[in-house]
Amino acid sequence: MRLVLLVYYGISLASVSAADMPRVQISDDGRGFKLANSQDAFVPWGFNYDRDANGQLIEQYWDEEWPRVIEDFQEMKALGANVVRIHLQFAALMQSPTEARPRARQKLTRLLRLAEQTGLYLDLTGLGCYHKADVPAWYDALSEAERWQAQAAFWEVVAETCADSPAVFCYDLMNEPVVPGGNKPREDWLGPAFAGKHFVQFISLDRAGRKRSEVAKQWIAQLVAAIRKHDGRHLITVGLVPWSLDRPGMTSGFDPTKVAEDLDFIAVHLYPETGKVDEAIETLRGFAAAGKPVVIEETFPLKCSAEELSVFLDASREHAAGWIGFYWGQTPEELRGAETIPQALTLGWLELFQRGAPPP
């Protein structure tokens, strides 16, 4: 089915070259993005390629099943995407606090070439520890300062490898970081698992009396500085949970109005709930108050119908400059006649995605 679709859509890896991909910049009005050569508006519209349909992370299959990665990129392009968000795991790249694994750069370079050839920009999200069993014991044993230094080393490797590629849309420092809010020190760097994966990660175990936003700002500044040693051009952000706003109840410590200074744009993860689209828009408005472009870096009909998500997407265009959903290696054609609820939800999302990004 995949190969038939590729022929149908006329997608070829030889159809695009690195020279055809201009760098993405912040627009002149500071509310969105533009292409460096033409100054045309660029609207991020794409997919999180965080796992496959079986829950495997890309590092688990990109060696032995590289042709499948190629096909998935081609399929995402055929569906209308211009951005793919890749979730890089810390342990897959680093073998010590200061040294990358011998073939890590080679694998990342191969991914860059694929993105260039397919004409897809990459949102490179780093420092993942999604599978707890794969996190090195030495990494968890580091002090906060040592852990931040190891994370900075990770980003130096990535930035040095990717600096010259036009296919990089942005570097996302970490998926859903949190500064602990209580006075009692934590014992675990990872938040609770969701579907067997730990998407939330703490950047500190003990605030030791520091303000949460100040811890977040210092962490961002250190990692941004590490990237800028090697790459002064590509955009930098961090993927924030929706409960990052300074409101009553649970918060992450990453209030966008307080931590945005060193970031080029704000990335928020928003999953509207049934009957609460207006509430999601109000949350989005809070992130836009930081005065930087906002990309909804994760969204999906997880808590609402595809129809309600469509309403949310249209309404969000007042505040958002881009949208990124999910793709797990199965096309709409392969999902027709879905037998499970997750498959049906994914089909509904992909059919919605094919309508295209909300107009400005």
Rank of each mutant, 00 (worst) to 15 (best):
V224S: 01
E318G: 02
F194I: 12
S244E: 10
Y61D: 09
M1N: 11
E146P: 05
D29I: 06
A18N: 01
E334Q: 15
V259L: 05
S17Q: 09
S310P: 00
V16M: 12
A357M: 08
L350Y: 07
R147W: 10
L190F: 07
A150K: 06
A78T: 00
Y49T: 07
G249C: 05
T251F: 01
T161W: 10
L352N: 13
K258H: 01
G239L: 02
V135R: 09
L352P: 09
P166G: 08
E214Q: 13
W323Y: 15
E71M: 10
Q201E: 11
A78R: 06
T274N: 07
A193W: 04
M94C: 09
P22T: 05
F265D: 06
H234W: 02
P272S: 08
D164Q: 14
H230K: 11
K107H: 11
R23M: 02
A289S: 14
V294D: 12
L111R: 05
V135M: 09
K107C: 01
E176C: 06
R110C: 00
P272H: 07
R207W: 03
A153G: 01
Q25H: 07
A344I: 00
E187G: 06
W349H: 14
I236E: 06
P342S: 07
G291Q: 08
F287N: 11
E65L: 10
L122M: 12
W138K: 10
F154I: 03
D72W: 12
D28L: 04
Q330R: 15
A320W: 12
E273H: 14
I58A: 09
E176R: 03
E64R: 13
L223R: 01
S17A: 08
A167T: 10
D188I: 11
T274Q: 12
V16Q: 12
L111M: 14
H230R: 14
R31S: 13
Q25L: 13
A315I: 01
L173T: 05
Y8W: 11
A320Y: 12
V24H: 06
R147S: 09
I236C: 08
A193P: 05
D206T: 09
F154H: 04
G32Y: 07
E261A: 13
P242A: 04
D255S: 06
L270R: 03
G55E: 13
W155F: 15
D63E: 12
Q74F: 01
A41G: 02
L235A: 04
W328N: 12
Y49W: 14
R212W: 00
L223C: 01
A357H: 08
A221R: 01
A321Y: 05
R110L: 01
Q95R: 15
L284F: 10
H319Q: 15
L6R: 13
T340F: 03
Q74T: 02
I266N: 06
A226I: 02
P242M: 02
G181W: 02
E214V: 07
P360G: 00
E339H: 08
F169A: 04
E307T: 13
A36Q: 13
D134S: 13
P248E: 05
E146D: 15
I70R: 10
E273V: 04
C162S: 14
